[in-house]
Simulated assay, not measured.
Amino acid sequence: MKNLGYYNGKFDELDKMMIPMNDRVHWFGDGVYDAGPCRNYNIFAIDEHVDRFFNSASLLDIVMPVTKQELKNLLNELVQKLDTGNQFVYYQVTRGTGVRNHAFTPGAGNLWVTLVPAEVSDGTEPIQVITEEDTRFHHCNIKTLNLIPSVMAAEHAKQKGCKETILYRPGGRVTECAHSNCHIIKNGKLFTAPTDELILPGIARAHLIRKCKELGIAVSETPYYLKDLMEAEEILVTSSSNFCLRVDKVDGISVGGKQPELFEKIRKAVVDEFITATNVEAGKIRTAS
């Protein structure tokens, strides 16, 4: 297959899949999701992503229809069905199916999976971003399907020829991007927003922090502000699609570029981790066995 969609045990190419109209996702966006890259049929950091997925569901009292191990087994089976082993693996659970009612639909949720061919950026090309006030609610730590503010912020960036939108709260505190985490390097130290209710605890963020510590680079998980952003030695953007990108313009103003060797050391460390973890062609091994 070139791509794949899965819904509660049924799967086919994406444009052939049909979803019941009474799935609560249609009425309320009532669900959570997670996603990550797959290379050589190896799903990267699957344990961390599945743990966060289940945590998001728990925080919204959504009943999972599978166990963690059942989900991991299913995802590893589904990636085998694509023609390429380099994919982006997305999965979500919605609260259930029932006639529209704000009160919860009883029972287990509905499990969705989509698989599409994808490559992970190596982060060597810098990106341009814009800034915008963060109008999202105070549950940003939960990876919910209610993404309208993020969708609008991403569209505003696209309209201005930029890759991302860095969001800030009243008072100028930088939180994260429309669909990424954001970090700065100041005095050779990595600063990243704390994992409170204002940001998603990104898996790529966690790997970035771990690699910085391994490299002897100090890390501070403390709030920072727009002034800090504009004066930073480097601005980094991380996500499961782009492990470590460097920003060279914010709102059309040149920024960063003051610690190129340090950035390259960090970029190489996180990308090499991904390459090493996914080098074995697991799909061929599993097929042969």
Score class of each variant (00 low, 15 high):
Val32Tyr: 00
Val32Gln: 01
Val32Cys: 11
Val32Pro: 02
Val32Asp: 00
Tyr33Trp: 15
Asp34Gln: 05
Gly36Trp: 02
Arg39Asp: 08
Arg39Phe: 08
Arg39Gln: 12
Asn40Gly: 14
Asn40Leu: 10
Asn40Phe: 02
Tyr41Arg: 13
Tyr41Asn: 14
Asn42Met: 10
Asn42Ser: 12
Ile43Arg: 01
Phe44Cys: 13
Ala45Cys: 14
Ile46Ser: 12
Ile46Leu: 15
Asp47Ser: 14
Asp47Gln: 09
Asp47Phe: 10
Asp47Ile: 07
His49Phe: 06
His49Pro: 14
His49Ser: 13
Asp51Glu: 15
Asp51Gly: 04
Asp51Gln: 09
Asp51Phe: 03
Asp51Arg: 09
Arg52Ser: 07
Arg52Phe: 05
Arg52Trp: 13
Phe53Ile: 02
Phe53Leu: 11
Phe54Ala: 04
Asn55Gln: 12
Ser56Gln: 03
Ser56Arg: 04
Ser58Asp: 10
Ser58Ile: 01
Ser58His: 10
Ser58Cys: 02
Leu60Asn: 02
Leu60Met: 12
Leu60Gln: 08
Ile62Leu: 14
Val63Cys: 06
Met64Arg: 08
Pro65Cys: 07
Thr67Asp: 04
Thr67Ser: 15
Thr67Phe: 04
Lys68Thr: 07
Gln69Lys: 14
Glu70Lys: 10
Glu70Arg: 06
Leu71Gly: 02
Lys72Arg: 11
Lys72His: 02
Asn73Leu: 12
Asn73Val: 14
Asn73Gly: 05
Leu74Ala: 04
Leu75Lys: 13
Asn76Trp: 14
Leu78Pro: 11
Leu78Asp: 09
Val79Met: 13
Gln80Cys: 11
Lys81Asp: 04
Lys81His: 11
Lys81Thr: 11
Asp83Cys: 00
Asp83Gln: 13
Gly85Pro: 05
Asn86Ile: 07
Gln87Trp: 04
Gln87Asn: 04
Val89Met: 05
Tyr90Val: 00
Tyr90Asn: 00
Tyr90Thr: 00
Tyr91Gly: 01
Gln92Gly: 11
Gln92Lys: 00
